[in-house]
Design a protein around this nucleic acid. Structure first.
Lengths: 208, 208
DNA sequence: TATAGTTTGTGAATATTTTCATAATCTTCA
DNA sequence: TGAAGATTATGAAAATATTCACAAACTATA
């Protein structure tokens, strides 16, 4: 698509989704334009940081006016996959996998969950209108163009990841508690509630 | 407890749980000592960064030897709440809340889920041996010393957060998609699968 | 159209984080 | 015990990220 990554700082990259979420909410509230100073209070990021972050995607604002909310959302969606185009799969149809299948708030935001896979044949079939296939059929069943998988298996984690990578997956949202090794070019985002609680505990301890 | 926070860089803080997780795994594998260079390959963080991170908690290693895995785990657990002492609550007993109640891998790691709350009376009772109370009884039912809540409600988010803060909660693991306002001294960790997917999409787009 | 009042975008300054380079200190083995 | 080899801990340097400060450029109003 584009090759902005070389220039966009990592720190900025991590804030982009925050901005998009906030802008969508503002749009829903009927806000049509916003200034960096206002947005700052909303997302708790300094106005000047916001402006510099935005500047990596172009000159999106107007002096003396601010930013057009809808136009901004448009730009972010183009870069953050907000065009509902991503074909997502869930790998692991246990409790968490099922909850995520039913967690339909993300549909029509980044894409759709096309299907799921599970290693146990007795868990296949369909859940919440999402077909669940045996993991052994991954190669045949994986949707054309699928790049992102949500991983909720509880065993054989690395083996499963290897299968996904072979099948062309480039990004994994990882709900497991394992350390995963991936080759260059494959990204992992770990969702680890335990780690989050640990960070909270540390911060809470440190304050008092 | 201590007041390390002033000195420990934010970036370091975010890596602590990563180290703890890796060390626990190494311990399980029977590894008794480890050097920063070995650990580096495991967690994909530069050895020198690892050593500096560790140094904020003291001189934990020995020259020419490395680090003792169990001793290191001990130090991290002291700082990251690994003593199973945290009393956790889940607020919102919907699909996701239930999945998390049954996601018992975190018990005996940071603490235990003592109970859950839901605004709808017909969802109360008990699930997976965890009692579920009406949200209106939060003040009476919240466990003594509870500081951390896992938030999975889908509406009245800010109102619910306000209730939690009034009840003494200092840290929130946030599974909602809302922007939450909290006073100083209260920390939020947002678990946002959508945002993670967006980051992945951006990164994947940028590489090609 | 002109003027006053805003706010963006960005060079430069500052702050933070990572990495380099090496002294200090440990282990190991003869 | 001593010498060789290894690895940590850390001051200093480099890289990265944030914030300051202000010119440029817009809006709004008369």
């Amino acid at each position: 698509m584009n090759s902005l990554k070389q220039m966009v700082p990592k720190a900025t990259l991590q804030r982009f989704p925050v901005y998009l979420k906030a802008l969508r909410k503002l749009d829903n509230l009927g806000v049509q334009r916003i200034m960096s100073r206002e947005l700052s209070e909303f997302v708790d990021i300094e106005p000047t940081t916001i402006r510099r972050d935005f500047s990596f995607l172009g000159s999106l604002g107007k002096q003396g006016y601010g930013y057009d909310v809808k136009a901004l959302i448009d730009v972010f969606e183009r870069h953050l996959g907000g065009r509902f185009e991503e074909k997502l799969i869930i790998v692991g149809a246990g409790n968490l996998g099922r909850a995520l299948m039913n967690y339909n708030r993300w549909n029509h935001v980044v894409g759709e969950i096309v299907c799921a896979f599970d290693i146990e044949p007795n868990k296949t079939g369909a859940m919440y209108e999402i077909p669940v296939y045996p993991l052994s059929e991954l190669k045949e069943r994986i949707p054309e163009g699928c790049r992102i998988a949500i991983l909720t298996v509880s065993k054989d984690v690395q083996e499963t990841v290897n299968l996904l990578i072979e099948a062309g997956v480039k990004g994994i949202v990882d709900f497991t508690h394992e350390h995963i090794q991936v080759p260059k070019g494959v990204n992992i985002k770990a969702v680890d509630v335990v780690s989050m609680i640990q960070e909270l505990v540390f911060e809470t301890n440190s304050i008092s």
